[in-house]
């Protein structure tokens, strides 16, 4: 089994008496993209800031490439590219000066990487940062996180403020970074983006971890609507004994129902009654996310299947 690139074990952070996050536990493997989801104030930023050593954990451990992260450790940060949620930039500098400063502090030349990413994102590096739009400032944040080719990327809302074209370019950059073996932890409010990029997701709410799973598993375990088309009308009672379906309705030759888990049994019964075609409407990540966060009972959700 490969060693985790990022590992959190019972990570808990209180700010005085106020809960930041409690008992967050998950791993990200090399070459894996982990989506990190939750509403505003759920604890995503707290978790990420703890992972880069900005916050002292109340309890639990966080590991980067097997080494425990503390506010005292700094050597491991060579391997980390971190994009804060609201990156503060040196606004009196130009983009080039800003990135060169960070590169020098990392003892990295990075000139080629900076230039090529700036070209890719259509960013003018010679304008003062204070004169740049929010989107262009975000591009500088993205470049500083990727420029030293880190093996771990911790990205807090990386596409915030980016236009769709740049978002697509960013997705391509993330894909390339993943293919060279980097582990990426990425939080985003754009759930379709996470669905497209991530292999697995962690969902947290109110500082507590609700689940961690592969997106494909989540979809399997989520309610789906199925339309069954027959040659002639079929009474809905036929499906009354099928496990895992509900809300069965008949519309002429069509029967609709909602399914949780495998569709095998449903299809077997339908075929016996002359099934001609079937359409399945899968939930997207948005629907899954809302059902989990608003449902408030991740365990109930998990045991549906």
């Amino acid at each position: 089994m490969p060693t985790s690139a990022i590992s959190l074990k019972g990570v808990t952070k209180f700010y005085g008496h106020e809960l930041g996050v409690m008992d967050v536990t998950f791993e990200v493997l090399p070459g894996e993209i982990m989506g990190f989801l939750g509403p505003n104030g759920a604890g995503k930023t707290t978790t990420m800031r703890a992972l880069v050593g900005l916050l002292k954990l109340t309890s639990g451990q966080a590991y980067i490439l097997g080494e425990e992260v503390t506010i005292y450790s700094h050597e491991m940060r060579k391997e980390i590219g971190y994009l804060p949620g609201s990156p503060g930039l040196y606004e009196n500098l130009t983009g080039w000066e800003h990135l060169r400063f960070l590169a020098k502090m990392r003892d990295c030349d990075c000139t080629e990487e900076i230039r090529s990413m700036a070209e890719r994102f259509d960013l003018d590096l010679h304008r003062r940062i204070k004169d740049l739009s929010k989107g262009n400032q975000q591009k500088i944040g993205v470049i500083q996180a990727f420029m030293h080719r880190p093996s771990i990327l911790i990205l807090d809302e990386p596409t915030s403020g980016l236009d769709p074209i740049v978002q697509r370019e960013f997705s391509a950059l993330v894909d390339e970074t993943q293919s060279r073996g980097a582990a990426i932890l990425l939080s985003s409010h754009v759930l379709s983006e996470v669905e497209h990029l991530a292999d697995r997701v962690v969902i947290i709410n109110d500082g507590k971890q609700l689940l961690v799973d592969e997106i494909s598993n989540l979809k399997k375990r989520t309610l789906r609507t199925v339309d069954l088309f027959f040659g002639s009308p079929i009474p809905p009672e036929v499906f009354s004994r099928v496990h895992g379906i509900k809300d069965v309705h008949t519309y002429g030759n069509r029967i609709t129902c909602t399914v949780i888990g495998a569709e095998t049994e449903l299809l077997k019964v339908a075929v016996e009654h002359g099934l001609e075609s079937v359409q399945t409407h899968e939930s997207n990540l948005d629907e899954i996310f809302f059902s989990i966060v608003e449902g408030g009972d991740p365990n109930g959700y998990s045991t549906i299947s």
Binding site: R49, H74, L102, M105
Partner: peptide, 18 residues
């Protein structure tokens, strides 16, 4: 000033000790 302007998040996550 670095903390107030949030530049500390970049400066203090570099591979250099506080």
């Amino acid at each position: 000033q670095e903390e107030e302007r949030r530049t500390a998040d970049l400066l203090l996550t570099l591979p250099i000790s506080r």
